[in-house]
Design a binder for these strands. Sequence first.
RNA 1: GGCGCCAUAGCCAAGUGGUAAGGCGAAGGUCUGCAAAACCUUUAUUCUCCAGUUCGAAUCUGGAUGGCGCCUCCA
Length: 465
Amino acid sequence: MKIFNTQSRRKEEFAPVEQGKVKLYVCGPTVYNYFHIGNARPIVVFDTLRRYLEHRGMDVTFVQNFTDIDDKMIRRANEEGITVRELADRFIAAYFEDAQALGARPATVHPKATEHMPEMIAIIEKLFANGLAYEANGDVYFDTQAYRSHYGRLSGQNIEDLESGARVEVDEIKRHPMDFALWKAQKPGEPAWESPWGMGRPGWHIECSAMSMKYLGETIDIHGGGQDLVFPHHENELAQSEGATGKPFVKYWMHNGFLNIDNEKMSKSLGNFMLARDIFKVFDPEAVRFFLLSAHYRSPLNFSREQIEQAKAALERLYTARDNYAFLLDKAEDREPGADDLAVADMARAMLTKFDEAMDDDLNTADAIGALFELCKQANIALKPGAAKSAVRAVMDAFLEITGVLGFVKPVDDGPDAEVEALLAARAQARKDKNWKESDRLRDAMKALGYTVEDTAQGQKVKKG
RNA sequence: GGCGCCAUAGCCAAGUGGUAAGGCGAAGGUCUGCAAAACCUUUAUUCUCCAGUUCGAAUCUGGAUGGCGCCUCCA
């Protein structure tokens, strides 16, 4: 598998530190609000990456943090008159609801910043020992000047370039404008923790270094997040982590492109965002997932109502295909496969290979979805009434394998209830008698009960909806 | 100012040197008692524009135009 590494700016062959095991860390949300549809992109992308790595037989340990202490958390909690902890608990719960709606499985571990103070302090102490940190008025800063030959590798800029465009106000306390806070002294009314530098709280970047190292070790395989995290967040994580351990921090950095609205970045600061949960009230979350995977993860993607509707229509075709295979599987003859049946099974395996090849190429989900549609197209042509069960089985297996990775897993409908079963039986008799009027009446009756009936060569086929 | 990305049909989107995947939409057709689903046909002689390299370019090079991102909290 090839992965585009932000640090080298090229696709590299993926080889985890330990063969067969993948250590994956993705920066999670600051839990001061519900997440917006732009935030949904990394959630879906990295969930899909994880599912694909598992599909390829790898054992994935996936860590995604919650930032539950920072300026925005404190401000919002004060506005609402609740504690930071209460605020965090509320939005963490909401996060899991919304992420689940998108088909994102929980990570292996979801650590919280506030529960990892000793680990963060330990890294800062190492940075002091290595001459890369200094204290000023109870704050602790990373000394970018002392690290200047290494700083800027990820974002591809040196300190001078960064500085020249810096819009930050010169901070009297810091020795250099690019230095960033590792620890902030407590201000009145703020939550604080004990540290060797007095009461205070961690800077934003240090938590990810600490939690990544704690759960995954000093060198991990993949660190992911949105493109806007490259600088300063990931640059700083890299500096402080390697500055502390002297070991490589991350083998592959992966960054997803933005979800735009009207060709502009959707973000909380621009105020042009739409909450994921509000969108789910109008659109099927699985259609949102399909939409998010319909373009390559590094490309910008423009959000619109029309796009989601197209995604929904495309998904319907897949659901229908799957229902048709399930129906055929039920009716198919369990016999020795003939040449046609073997050809269908070969085709299904070929599409699975095509899917893997697309995903192997830096998680090309758009191309991979093409393979899924081609599987359905070919199967719809080839699976005629009378196909052997093994042929249908092969198609169904490939379909479920692929949709399992992409996360389009809408469950199969329950069978019809007794009332509908009775109507079906009556309609079968009416059809046998060529009593079309009665047949249509019964079809309408089932429609009223929420079932759609179709007539096929193998008899009536019902589905909910 | 520095760093970087993008431009493919009505819409979305793959394709990075060998002659334009796939989906949505639209039009016509086959099948069907009628439907539905499915299938078939049509919908880019051409990839923003101009020059160049090459037997061959959507793909490489140079330039132009348009759009976006990071350098400040952000996915």
